[in-house]
Design a protein around this nucleic acid. Structure first.
Lengths: 354, 354
DNA sequence: AAGCATTCTGGAAACGTTTACATTCCACGC
DNA sequence: GCGTGGAATGTAAACGTTTCCAGAATGCTT
């Protein structure tokens, strides 16, 4: 028994001959170790849990892909729990995961410090995937919305656009607010005398359409529109096109996220690329590092993921060509956002098994 | 110990008073039963595994959502393993799940009978989520591509379109082939004298764009285009618009899938709605039924999910109105596809816990 | 009052692994 | 020849539940 365990787990103190024999027999009998029994004694499940909100579309799938890939690379499994409406549901889902995971990746609008304090055991490593409001003992990873919005606004100003309209996301949404703030900061820094015009939206394509209609009807049309996400930008684009305005000749347009459709609109959409899969992967790496650390030395660190500008025809790049998707290599401008003082790149810990 | 177990698990043979006390103490101590220990003795993990291919976008997230929601509703957890490139990776992922799940949902291009035979233990309940090629001992669930394509083609013909071009998906892809077959069947039944024109694509927006350009340049333009998925339809729409053709006045267009963007294009896209989340949810229900059955009585059944037509402006519905997304109620035509002889709706088994 | 059925409780085995510890074996140096 | 040390292997405890079974307590029947 003991020898079998040692042989299969690759310990060194077992004769080569015996090991070979054990392995041969094991494969012949299609032996699979009982993971519950193993977990019982090792106190490890080799599984991490992901607690996600009710999400749709590309963002969700990219995030999962990033997490899953990173997890598998390190021999970990992924226990998924998505689509939680309210805080109680989230709490229940967290509760249900408790014995089953070695660590937790949490992305939830309800994951405020009070919630964490109340529902998350002290000794369970966890990483937050939210823009963080207030302090918490947990580390967090987030997209640097402000840096992205700042950079895009800067780009628009540098291209000569002066009157820029901002279409915001829903009130109370942190991503939305940070993006707005980044725009305002840039406008304040670069065009101090300008009065920013703001149209409120809610991240939906429909709200972008409404905003676009509104803007198209204005007597004094702005020169550029910066929507807080791509969906709204695309809705807006439909409205503008419908109103007979040409983008970017009559009005420039930019979005945020770089969803796949962005490069196939007519004209292709200038936007801010968010590497979502990368975000998930990094979060997982950091979580595994915390687990390897015994969960004790969980320094509070907030890491920002710098987005990149993706410049396409909708803001005037290549505007002379009727850009076909085929012949439309993106112009990408990498923009390193300055990260917080305690942010740092988490080193990849060595894989634990095989 | 025994009494505590009984009290917490809601067995009947424990005094009400004692149970109350046990529960009080348990919550006070934040006691969470150790799932590994429980699994060890019960031989149940309360977890089902999902083995998915490397997928992008909305389809993936919808599928997960459906599975996850159904699983949670029945007190099951979801262990996810996605993004497997080749058959070996898939096999490894399957292997790694073996001890950890009570059942498996498999969607993989490699899940042919031979693969299943070789890698899946006999006694592990599993459901296939593929269009099935060849026979296997497993039950399967799939979208009824042929019925959907047939219905859409029928609709186009009924609207008076005679020359219809089909844009196909990638060669060898079963969804693609089934959809094509559905179209051809309908054309054969309804317009026996017509010679179907086929342009090949690969499900990508770009290939749709290329197909659209090609069609726009033709001297004898067809009256309608039916793309095998929405992405290609949208790419095609861009190409047509760019070429100065109006949809649907100059040419009608239809897609397949009803991805979210479909209702926001200009004009909104007529398409075949595939209820992906529903597919996932049903698959899970069927799997749990098989698990409850002890996995022994796994009758081989193939269940088809009937898609619905979603009629929007791109094929001429409401074509008089410049349809704004806001004022664009979908016209949905439910079309029950005739299911296979042994197909049936799986009843929901009662939840096992809480 | 004794026997019996019923309800509740507690003791202990069992699940399948890992690992601390004990044992065996062999080679080596004294 | 004997102790010492190291490598390989075996023994048994431990992990935290559930469940079988025995036993205690209670009420009911005869």
């Amino acid at each position: 028994m003991a020898t079998v365990s040692r042989a299969l787990n690759g310990r060194d103190n077992v004769a080569a001959e015996v090991r070979a024999h054990v392995q041969a027999v094991a494969t012949r009998l299609r032996y699979v170790p009982h993971s519950a029994a193993r977990s019982l004694i090792t106190r490890r499940t080799q599984t991490i849990g992901a607690l996600l909100p009710d999400m749709h579309g590309e963002f969700f799938s990219e995030l999962i892909r990033g997490i899953d890939k990173a997890a598998r690379a390190q021999g970990y499994h992924l226990l998924l729990s998505s689509s939680h409406g309210d805080a109680d549901e989230t709490a229940a889902a967290l509760q249900a995961m408790l014995g089953r995971v070695d660590g937790l990746l949490i992305m939830s609008p309800h994951a405020d410090p009070g919630f964490i304090e109340q529902h998350l055991p002290e000794d369970l490593p966890a990483i937050l995937l939210n823009p963080v409001r207030g302090h918490t003992r947990l580390s967090a990873l987030a997209v640097d919305n402000r840096a992205g919005a700042y950079a895009m606004t800067q780009h628009l100003v540098h291209r000569g656009y002066r009157e820029i309209v901002l279409i915001t996301g829903p009130k109370g949404n942190l991503d939305s607010e940070e993006r707005l703030q980044g725009c305002l900061d840039a406008l304040h820094d670069l065009l101090p005398e300008a009065v920013p015009q703001i149209v409120s939206g809610d991240f939906s394509e429909e709200s972008g359409y409404r905003a676009g209609s509104l803007i198209a009807r204005q007597s004094a049309r702005p020169q550029a529109i910066f929507a807080a996400n791509d969906s709204m930008a695309i809705g807006c684009l439909f409205a503008l096109t419908e109103a007979g305005l040409r983008v970017p000749d009559d009005i420039a347009l930019a979005g945020f996220d770089d969803i796949p459709t962005a490069r196939f609109t007519q004209p292709p959409l200038t936007t801010v690329r968010v590497r979502i899969a990368d975000l998930g992967g990094r979060a997982l790496d950091q979580l595994l590092a915390a687990i390897a650390n015994g969960g004790s030395a969980q320094q509070h660190s907030v890491q920002m993921l710098a987005p990149e500008l993706v410049l396409r025809a909708s803001c005037g790049m290549h505007s002379h060509a009727a850009a076909a998707p085929t012949h439309n290599p993106d112009t990408v401008s990498k923009k390193r956002a300055q990260a917080g003082p305690d942010a740092r790149r988490t080193p990849h810990p060595a894989p634990k098994h095989r």
